[in-house]
Design a protein around this nucleic acid. Sequence first.
DNA 1: CCGGTAACTGAAAAATTCTTTCAACTAGGA
DNA 2: TCCTAGTTGAAAGAATTTTTCAGTTACCGG
Lengths: 121, 121
Amino acid sequence: MRGGGYKATPQRTAVLRALIEEQHQSLEEIRARCPEVGLVTVYRTLDLLGELGIVRRLDLGDGSRYELAEYHHHHMICESCGNISEFQECPLDPKLLPPESADFEVWSHSLEVYGRCGACR
Amino acid sequence: MRGGGYKATPQRTAVLRALIEEQHQSLEEIRARCPEVGLVTVYRTLDLLGELGIVRRLDLGDGSRYELAEYHHHHMICESCGNISEFQECPLDPKLLPPESADFEVWSHSLEVYGRCGACR
DNA sequence: CCGGTAACTGAAAAATTCTTTCAACTAGGA
DNA sequence: TCCTAGTTGAAAGAATTTTTCAGTTACCGG
């Protein structure tokens, strides 16, 4: 953080702490966890952390959500209760990548599985 | 369309025609293809087509985009030029689905590949 | 420990995006 | 052709995100 010429302010610490507490939070959920930080600063901090590759913005169908990007993972979204869960096993089989991708340099990918969770069945 | 008690209006036809012309358009791109249709009506038509399962809303990182959902496909997004291409071969290997998903009923999934396209390399 | 400064913050205003309201209009069945 | 449920669009409203700018602060160098 400081390496890039950025300051470690209490506000940034608070937002980061909020993000650590739970994944996939909406802006309002994050705000609720650090009410002392101004709205604009929350947005700016999320932007900054995004540029640093620490945070990722998602839209899983109900607007912006934010999560730490520490590790590669995917999402299972229950269309019944809205619960979002993660899994890290990656079911992508590179052998099955399409021919069109031959000259496409793959940097990353995202995978979301939609359906109904155990509790809702 | 008429089956569900909906009317086939010129506005709905125009929006649908715009969607057929190109995939992954932003709202403004769609609007530009049917300037005679009011903003509100475009939103409402996209909603309606969404409920009917004809149209899908996406957020690939730069806000809402809309596409026909006729066939199952995935996206390759070039982070250099922003170009979005589709592929239909699905590189998902069900055998590799995680154990947590055992009691999750999978209805659908989405997969996006990010990187750099051939032209940008 | 202290001062200087580039970086940061927050309130207000602005911009953007999307939704609601409501009076007028129309597609399509009777 | 008439009737009516469904549809449209302008305006207003709500929600979300960005910009501006004056005041504040972290932290580096001394």
